[in-house]
Design a protein around this nucleic acid. Structure first.
Lengths: 256, 256
DNA sequence: CGACGTGTTGAGTGTGATCAACATCTGTGG
DNA sequence: CCACAGATGTTGATCACACTCAACACGTCG
């Protein structure tokens, strides 16, 4: 399959949600914003980018002039070794900020791909300094989001380094499900998590075959279901117990 | 061994380096600071904390009122599973900022332990908001450092998830060596990296025995030496080639 | 001296990798 | 409408990398 690379010029401003009527912001997870902050963000936003399923949003090694917040859809961050081995670093759900590393440090050190159709709010990288100068609260929020990403990576590292295959799988699916739940996705009997077993394998650091056998065990234990190219969580408690994970413990968080 | 927990009240201000005469700042890796920034950091700094080798600096689950920059010495961040399995997340060398996660998000999600005697600059968590308000440049720097940590974690995750044991070991040792080199540690025939094979094992996600056998291969290939409780890098190029790692690619960076 | 931390090595085991084949389902072109 | 290719999931057989258990060497420190 030919992979498309999303470009702003191409697809931008197909639709335009005003920040004042942001569909995400009303969710209970997100902290309330000052009107002045909302106003700034509104000007900070340059447009929207619609990305097809399977398309690459950001490429390792490139330096994107943009910063994005996910408005809707699923995606993932990953890195490749030179021989093609792939490691998925984290998943991306609505409300997540992507491309910060590239904006701050100049060059992307990982790639981002869309798991489903994706709509992104596009921000100008150049205005980021302005944000830091005029809105310390928002600047703090961005650091907050970077710290949160770091925390999730710590958890993933712990999981891959020290958990067994079945524990890892249980942790991963519980983790993704929890993240999705907080932003209104993957509610009971709504949409499944749109990943293939290859994605799971590349996240857990396991082979595809062994991932399949491991997931089969979770299915047999009645913890998950796998259907039409996705995973449905049936028994979250069971997954948490099996993995020994405490679950996400986040209060309100910022949305930029 | 009884593990000590470092506390500021106990050891603070044993010595006091003025920020104006900071021994780290002159190093070529660090970017130049505005006098006003230097002045603020100087007031931001509350004192120094001397930590013994093996002592715990920060504990998972606690919420420290401080933020630290490492002035000298080595340490590492880690997480534990409930049954005691340990995963080392990253190593800490002079110039690194630690405790940011706790300062920003309220509670530490990982612990920090000293690998060698450690001297830390202590900053007040409460003044962090002030920093964001008055010095956007420094605020940006802190986000920069958070992004950098994220980048290192991405690399580690790729390594643990997708590299073989010997590749992982080669990558890890090259990585630590490079980080140390940029801040003037571990120069040729100076100090070795002060880690045990247990640390390496807990970083790579391998057992102690298998780590030993893997390191032995690196020794036999003449890439490293292991002596008096530490690792000496002999053939950096060989390690880089074996692991397929590009090496650190950092320009100037901030020091807060 | 003995206890402990650290490193080393061998033997046997097992988790997870690799190879291979096949079942579905989808979309595509003849 | 069918044939075919490609993506995805499934299963069995075999192999190997890494784990566990066990023992021992060597240092330091009380």
């Amino acid at each position: 399959m030919e992979k498309k690379i999303a470009s702003v010029a191409e697809n931008a401003t197909a639709r335009r949600h005003s920040c004042e009527a942001c569909p995400l912001r009303p969710l209970p997870v997100f902290r309330a914003f000052e009107p002045s902050e909302l106003d700034f963000v509104s000007h900070f936003k340059r447009g929207e980018l619609a990305v097809d399923r399977g398309a690459t949003v950001l490429v390792e090694g490139s330096s994107s002039p943009h910063l994005y917040t996910v408005l809707s859809g699923w995606g993932f961050r990953f890195k490749l070794l030179s021989d093609g081995r792939r490691q998925i670093l984290n998943y991306i759900v609505p409300g997540d900020l992507i491309g910060l590393q590239g904006s701050i440090m100049g060059e992307m050190q990982h790639s981002v791909e869309a798991l489903s159709a994706l709509v992104l709010c596009v921000f100008e990288r150049d205005k980021l300094m302005q944000l830091y100068g005029r809105h310390p609260g928002l600047a703090y929020d961005i650091t907050w989001l970077a710290s949160r990403e770091e925390r999730m990576l710590d958890e993933n590292l712990l999981s891959i380094g020290r958990r067994s295959a079945i524990e890892r799988a249980a942790y991963l699916l519980a983790f993704i499900h929890e993240r999705a739940r907080t932003v209104g996705l993957a509610t009971r009997s709504s949409t499944a998590i749109p990943i293939t077993q290859q994605h799971v394998a590349d996240t857990l650091g396991l082979s595809l075959v062994h991932t399949n056998k491991t997931l089969r065990k979770l299915i047999q234990r009645g913890m998950i279901e796998w259907r039409d190219g996705g995973c449905e969580i049936v028994d979250l408690g069971g997954l948490l117990k099996l993995s020994g994970w405490e679950g996400l413990d986040e209060g309100k968080r910022p949305l930029v």
